[in-house]
Amino acid sequence: MKDIAQALRGWTPEDPASEATIEYLTLEPELFEVVSSHQAGDQRFLVAFDWNTIGGPPGMNRALAVHVAFDPGTHRCRVHARGAPTFGWAGRWLVGRGADPRAVADYRPVPDDPYNLGPGDRAEGLISGQDYGFTRPGSRATRLIEDRVRRCGDRYRFLDSANAYPSFFNGEREATFVLLQDRHPRAVGRRFLIQLETVNVQRATYTITEGGFRTLAQARDWIDGIDAYAGTTPLLSATDPVTGLAPLGLPAPVRDRVAPVQGAATVARRTR
């Protein structure tokens, strides 16, 4: 974030929100690990990891989306930021503000020695699962899901997100879930979607799995079934990694059948 802090020097914030955001980002810019960044004309779009979230309350938004718009004519700038539970959802907010989905997905490579420990002490993987800024997608399916999230428009209604379990309980994995209402026409019967993003500490990667539920109560029951201390989650129903819907060929969830109301003409025919 240091390059943005330098780029903002001498520019006047256009509104109080921009002024507050600039102060937050430039006070200690090294606390933001930039994951992706691209420029389009006089605008900059960034996805970053917020180191301020380490040690904070569970469920804090550790990903951060930043949108900077410069106005050379007035030498003013608008700087807005939005926290998100994952990099994919941070990218979704930026795409909604005009970012190129492909550019947002162009993640910077993780440094060979991200902790600056030196050649002899270089860490393999992550020292802690909380070091989310040093992770990258670990599978093609995960990249496809993230791409759908970034391009989803108003398809999903965001309901909840939280840390499922931290890595310090079992040392190998850390997980975050996102609960959504899916407005896709094909999602009838499974409107409530859970995305589970799991960080593999040893590989410094994350993978996303999804599962749909017929009711919000069923989705909440799945969340309640997470064993945070063991670092385990119940199985999620299989989904197509492109659409986020049940794979083709699988039967749709059974819907309640409501008996049709008999009209007066029908009743009259039966009584003749």
Results as ranks from 00 to 15, higher is better:
residue 241 P to D: 12
residue 190 R to V: 01
residue 271 T to G: 03
residue 180 L to W: 12
residue 244 G to C: 03
residue 214 R to T: 06
residue 192 F to E: 02
residue 256 D to Y: 05
residue 176 T to Y: 11
residue 216 L to A: 13
residue 210 E to A: 14
residue 210 E to K: 08
residue 200 N to E: 10
residue 194 I to Y: 00
residue 252 A to G: 11
residue 172 E to Y: 03
residue 249 G to L: 12
residue 186 R to E: 09
residue 176 T to K: 07
residue 235 L to C: 05
residue 225 G to E: 11
residue 230 A to T: 12
residue 227 D to I: 13
residue 206 Y to C: 00
residue 245 L to G: 05
residue 265 A to D: 10
residue 227 D to G: 07
residue 271 T to L: 14
residue 259 A to C: 04
residue 181 Q to H: 14
residue 182 D to M: 06
residue 179 L to K: 00
residue 188 V to P: 00
residue 211 G to K: 02
residue 216 L to T: 06
residue 213 F to W: 06
residue 185 P to L: 09
residue 226 I to K: 07
residue 216 L to G: 01
residue 260 P to F: 13
residue 176 T to S: 10
residue 204 A to G: 06
residue 178 V to N: 06
residue 196 L to D: 02
residue 209 T to N: 08
residue 201 V to W: 00
residue 188 V to L: 12
residue 194 I to H: 01
residue 226 I to C: 10
residue 230 A to K: 14
residue 188 V to D: 09
residue 193 L to Y: 05
residue 222 W to H: 06
residue 260 P to K: 07
residue 203 R to I: 09
residue 191 R to M: 03
residue 185 P to T: 05
residue 191 R to N: 05
residue 246 A to L: 15
residue 211 G to Q: 06
residue 189 G to S: 05
residue 220 R to F: 08
residue 239 T to W: 06
residue 215 T to G: 05
residue 253 P to L: 06
residue 250 L to I: 11
residue 205 T to D: 07
residue 212 G to W: 01
residue 184 H to L: 10
residue 224 D to H: 11
